[in-house]
Simulated assay, not measured.
Amino acid sequence: MWFDDWNDIVRVAASTGAIYVTLVLILRVVGKRSLSKLNIFDLVVTVALGSTLASIMLNKDISVTEGAVAFIALCGLQWLVAWASLRVTWFKRLIRSDPRMLLHDGKFLDRAMRDERIMRIEVMSVIRKQGYADLEDIAAVVLETDGDFSVIPRSNASTRSALETIPGEDYTPDSEARPAR
């Protein structure tokens, strides 16, 4: 059906405007964290917010007030998870992923790449996009917690102190790390 009546059109327009303003205000109060690069929990909250927004706009059985309460609950849960992940170590490990070294001193770390389901061609693409043509010029490629790749050239890696926070790997060349082809 293309059109039922004007009351439905006016209701959708009014509830959309009201819930949009409500969501913007709630996200403004919650802070920049809600709009940052997404980890898995942030993604779930974002999808839930979008689904809730669509439901409120189109379902006449859900009031704007009920939708606002749902938004507040979702944003409150996101804030609580962020707060707990900063203060409770086991909870942080449960919610957040660690960065992972994929290439070290020009050599691929095959086990890490396999665990993260990353192919060599993807890593090489990231390196090329950063303007490098030789793997030997790269000190490290790290898969960050938000899914981005960091490419650290050898020329910028004198102390490698930023790599010390990457847990669980021994980056000395071994049989696992093979020269790039």
Rank of each mutant, 00 (worst) to 15 (best):
A82E: 15
S161L: 09
T165Y: 01
R117Q: 07
V21A: 15
R96W: 04
S51G: 10
K60L: 09
I127E: 01
L49N: 07
G147W: 05
V47M: 07
M1V: 11
H104K: 05
R28F: 01
R93A: 06
K92E: 09
D174Q: 13
I9H: 10
I138R: 09
F41H: 11
A73N: 01
D148W: 00
S85Q: 12
E164D: 15
I72E: 00
S158Y: 01
A14M: 11
P173S: 13
G50Y: 09
A82I: 08
F3W: 11
T52I: 10
T159C: 02
L58M: 05
E176Y: 05
P173L: 11
A14L: 15
A162Q: 11
V151P: 08
Q130C: 06
G50F: 12
N156T: 09
K92Y: 03
V29K: 09
Q78N: 13
A48H: 10
F3V: 12
E164W: 11
K32V: 04
R178C: 02
L163Y: 00
R120N: 08
L103D: 06
A177S: 01
G67T: 02
L53Q: 08
I19Q: 06
V81M: 05
W90I: 03
I19R: 05
A84K: 03
F149C: 00
R33F: 08
V29D: 12
S51I: 05
I127R: 01
I152P: 04
K32S: 04
L49R: 08
V88S: 07
Y132P: 03
P167R: 11
V126A: 15
V21S: 12
I19N: 07
I138N: 07
S125P: 00
T145K: 10
M1R: 06
A177N: 00
R87V: 06
P179R: 11
E169V: 15
I95V: 15
L23N: 09
W6A: 13
K107S: 08
M101R: 04
P99C: 03
A14K: 05
